[in-house]
Simulated scan of single mutants.
Amino acid sequence: MKRAIAMILFATIVLFTGGKEASARDAWVVIDADTGRLLSGSNEHVRMPIASLTKIWTAFTVLESGAPLGITTISPEAASAEGSSLYLKQGVSADVEGLLYGLMLRSGNDAAYALAEHAGGSLQGFVDLMNDNALLYGLNDTVFTNPSGLHNDLHLSTAYDTALMMYHAMKNEAFRKIASTHTYNYQLNNESYSWQNKHRLVLSNETAIAGKTGFTKTAGRTLVTYFEKDGKKIIVVTLNDGNDWNTHRQLSEEVFSKYELVTVAKKGRYAILPGMEGELNKPIKLLLKKGEKTSVSHILRIPRGEHKTCIGRWTVYFDNDPLLTKEILLTR
């Protein structure tokens, strides 16, 4: 009888202390890099530590902040940042663009702090900016407490939100160039550096275009990879996966084999309304697997007025969720 009561109490404790965040050990996700659509995943919305994948958002926030690239001075706090480092020295004047390469390719925490102080005025000012940008771009399950990804109990995201970070960041041409670079040569005062990208797949797999690695004892191994093949573009994220290189290869190969790039609207002229035509300059394509085309729908928004020519908005939906919008030239 006592054993039975004990088992009931144990089950009750599991039920009330369980839930996604408590039970998740790892997570992964694959999204369409053109639309952000979730293609597959496991625990993809569970909030977990992401380690240095944080630096994707740090770099993107710096580039989007409007802060001049130019030169910045390494503060005592930046020079003494714990964790992975570029070994920047206090008081040294450093090129901001070079620091962005050191941040993404070598995961320098000192670079992260120097960039934060440069673009945000202070470390906390920049962290606030990161969180404001997270809300602006729909990272609803993400909170940042620092620009490097060092562990903090409140510094959490999800596999899906992290994939969205890469999705938005790769639309910035400067970020895309940095994140896809294999080797960067950097001159700092009288010293020369050659930084090789830590992302093994970016260096060895022709379909892996860009990415970021991460690790802390709490987060485990974290990894994001942007893949392209035959016009198909996907982003893979794994959190707390000790076999992440193979997982990313496997997931990318599976998705590329299951999904096709399907034309859902052809380039050309369309009869919109009596007396109105539309010209679509480029075809609209979506990454779809067999049977999904029936879930695609379209809505065309026509501006008010009697102008002979105007720009309409052609939005493509999947299961009633908007995926992408293209301009269409309307003539009366």
Rank of each mutant, 00 (worst) to 15 (best):
L63I: 06
N281V: 02
N189Y: 10
L100W: 14
S75T: 14
L139K: 06
T72D: 06
K308V: 06
L164S: 06
S122L: 11
H248D: 03
F175W: 12
A179D: 00
V29I: 13
V264N: 00
L53R: 05
Y160Q: 09
L103T: 01
A119I: 10
L223H: 15
L100E: 14
A6H: 08
Q196N: 08
Y193V: 02
V92I: 11
Y113W: 06
I299L: 15
L286S: 02
K258W: 06
L261V: 02
N320G: 07
V92L: 07
T331F: 06
T222L: 04
E64K: 13
V202T: 04
I272R: 05
E327K: 15
D241W: 12
L288E: 01
F318M: 04
G91V: 08
I272M: 01
E191D: 11
G242H: 09
S297D: 04
A159V: 02
R269M: 02
M170W: 10
Y226C: 00
C310T: 13
T325A: 13
H118R: 06
I284Y: 06
V262Y: 06
L63G: 03
R221K: 14
E206I: 10
V255W: 06
T158M: 08
N133Q: 12
E292G: 01
L201F: 05
F227G: 01
D128L: 10
L86V: 00
G98N: 15
T222P: 01
A265N: 03
T294W: 01
T238C: 02
S40W: 05
N189T: 11
M276I: 13
E254L: 13
A210W: 00
K171M: 04
P322F: 14
L164A: 10
V62W: 07
R301V: 04
T294L: 02
A78R: 08
D32W: 11
I13K: 08
I5R: 12
D34M: 08
K326F: 12
S42R: 15
E260F: 11
T72P: 03
S65P: 00
P49K: 12
D95Y: 10
A134H: 07
V224R: 09
T61Y: 08
S23H: 10
F60V: 03
Q90V: 04
T294V: 02
Y259G: 05
G121S: 10
W28L: 01
T213H: 14
M276C: 03
V255H: 13
G19N: 12
G278P: 03
D321P: 00
H151P: 15
D161H: 12
S42G: 07
D161Q: 14
H199P: 00
V29T: 12
Y160V: 04
A22I: 12
